[in-house]
Design a protein around this nucleic acid. Structure first.
Lengths: 350, 350
DNA sequence: GTCTGATATGTTAGCGCTAACAAAGCGGTC
DNA sequence: GACCGCTTTGTTAGCGCTAACATATCAGAC
């Protein structure tokens, strides 16, 4: 008898409490909790009932200590589209709270600043890194990570790199679908505002646009293709130029929401209406899309889902590395969605 | 000899490795790591050198298991201004990765949906909850939490409630300062767009505006005070009404950035310029503020800092509760900052 | 009946860390 | 020198969980 002192906090329910309550060993409870097979169905049911009754929830700290796979995952972002970032983080958090991963977050100024941030992470005992765009697309960052021998997963990469483990949507197909939808609405003169020339996504999205136009037998008028830079201002300017054409477009497809919002502002400034005179659509479904008026029709990436998936891939990769097993890079492609709001309408409504 | 099997993952550096390297006991290393006093300066230095040399970083899982204060902190948000949310999460993450807290994130649809979310959190073994606005201001949510006996911390609450532990800025003072700044720029006819009538922040900000006007001896023209709802559209409409006044305002102070952006759009639509004809300023410094053109002059809350602080307060509170000690609610007030961008200028520039 | 090979459960020890206690070291006081 | 109180270091055990091994149970085959 007489353990000297109990360090037990107080009323915390442990696996032992459940075990005692059911009349089995803690190990059996553990097996049930972790969904292992080789537990009699009857026993499993009793344990689950007790878990419910006692309101037991496992101590993740103890678990990761015992299993030795407490992954410390670094999150690196730069230049964030804030809207993207919040959804990204929500996805990461909800997944990692289940897997019990620790998170380390760092920001950096573009790919150049990444090295310092990554070194800091490594020094803090990071086991792997998840990259948000645009870093996920940077071959420079990828090289640094490989040199450091740190596993990584890219989220929303536009450039297909078979070497790299990532979660994305199909930008080409998404742009294709949006364009197709505009054509279905009767639009023929469709303007396109490209994204930043450095971003792979820009090119891919433009190709999707072209392909859809070509498939519909519509020639793309070079006067209706403008270079943008993903900024509100660049969308504003690009739209102005297009709308001053003799034969102005009835629809404008901007490669992201900020530029689409800028385009909306231009249309309004010229005394025209969206969507009555001009349909405007964006890409990304950031906060911008539903903040402006009229709200933007746009393409949505399931960012939170993608982020959550990236955590799972990261865990798999870290585990594989610990066990010295090889890890096959995976490219997971998620479905996008066309979100139709008030900024688009059939041609010639006004 | 012959421990049966080592379950050690592999190359992980532990406190024992450091201890052996220095030639002291693990406990001494632990003391150094945790910055306890009663360690000889010489010993401390040697330990720190070894920590550095071996690139040791403590296993948070083991620590929280041993200390029994592995806090599981719930984050509840609703209706998020995405820009707010991302900064909030960044702050929370960077702090909690240091304290080793586990995070659980849930969203809900306004205060009504909060109960379900909170019950889910409690069932998942949550020890306390951090509330982001507008939930932090909801007395309903506060009541639910008190009934559940869950500690909580509110971030960016506008309503001072001495019962509640929170981190905020002084909305009154912030609105006062911004108004004062506008007056310094020579503006006299200043319009004010209020926020949603349900939000306490709306009232507080308006009071700050009034006080500054009064102090400068300027009468507030009721025609230049409009009810808004924190949405782009409401700012758009409110500004339109004001600008159609016979004697139109030279500046408009909107209670948040979305409404300010809406006001900018109205100004442009009327063929006027920002800031040459009308100065427009916002509040919050969300992504919106630097996405639109011209970029908005606004008031910034140090959201990430505030969020990080809320985690510390939460940890303190949880620890106090575990030890059965009383916890005095704290109200921490952080400094705001006036961010001057291109949407404001001295009066009469054009 | 006994042996085989499965499945189901229990036992032991240890993951890395620190709370609590124990002991050693050190200076000063009477 | 014996005693006190203080600082510094060490020892032990245990936080809650699970890997690995050990054992029990059972069905079926010969």
């Amino acid at each position: 008898m007489a353990r000297k002192v109990s360090r037990r906090g107080g009323n915390i329910v442990t696996i032992h409490d459940v075990a005692r309550h059911v009349g089995v060993s803690p190990m059996t409870v553990s097996r049930v909790i972790n969904g292992e097979k080789n537990v009699r169905e009857e026993t499993r049911a009793k344990v689950l009932a007790s878990v419910e009754a006692l309101n037991y929830s496992p101590n993740l700290a103890a678990r990761s200590l015992a299993t030795q796979d407490s992954a410390r995952i670094g999150l690196l972002y730069s230049n964030p589209s804030v809207a993207f970032l919040s959804e990204f983080l929500v996805g990461i958090l909800s997944e990692s709270s289940q897997s019990g991963a620790q998170l380390l977050i760092e920001s950096c100024e573009g790919p150049e600043g990444a090295t310092a941030a990554l070194e800091k992470m490594k020094a803090n005992g990071c086991d792997g890194v998840i990259l948000s765009p645009p870093l996920s697309d940077s071959s420079r960052v990828a090289k640094v990570l490989r040199d450091m021998d740190l596993p990584f997963v890219g989220v929303a990469m536009a450039r297909p790199d078979p070497q790299v483990c990532c979660v994305t949507i199909d930008d080409f197909k998404a742009a294709f679908s949006m364009t197709k939808r505009l054509i279905e609405l009767g639009h023929q003169r469709i303007g396109f505002i490209k994204g930043h020339p450095n971003a792979y996504a820009s090119q891919t999205r433009f190709e999707g646009f072209e392909a859809a136009m070509q498939k519909a037998g519509i020639t793309v008028d070079p006067a209706l293709v403008a270079q943008g830079y993903f900024t509100y201002r660049s969308g504003f300017d690009a739209a102005e130029r297009m709308l001053n054409c003799k034969d102005r477009p009835t629809a404008i497809f901007a490669s992201n929401d900020d530029m689409a919002a800028g385009a909306v502002a231009t249309v309004h400034r010229m005394g025209l209406d969206v969507p009555d005179h001009v349909t405007i659509v964006g890409f990304d479904d950031t906060a911008m899309a539903s903040s402006v008026w009229p709200e933007l029709t746009t393409v949505r990436q399931p960012i939170a889902d993608m982020a959550a998936l990236s955590v799972r891939l990261m865990n798999d990769q870290i585990r594989a590395k610990r066990l010295g097993k090889p890890f096959e890079p995976v490219r997971e492609i998620r479905d996008f969605a066309l979100i139709e709001r008030q900024s688009s309408a059939p041609v010639g409504t006004a």
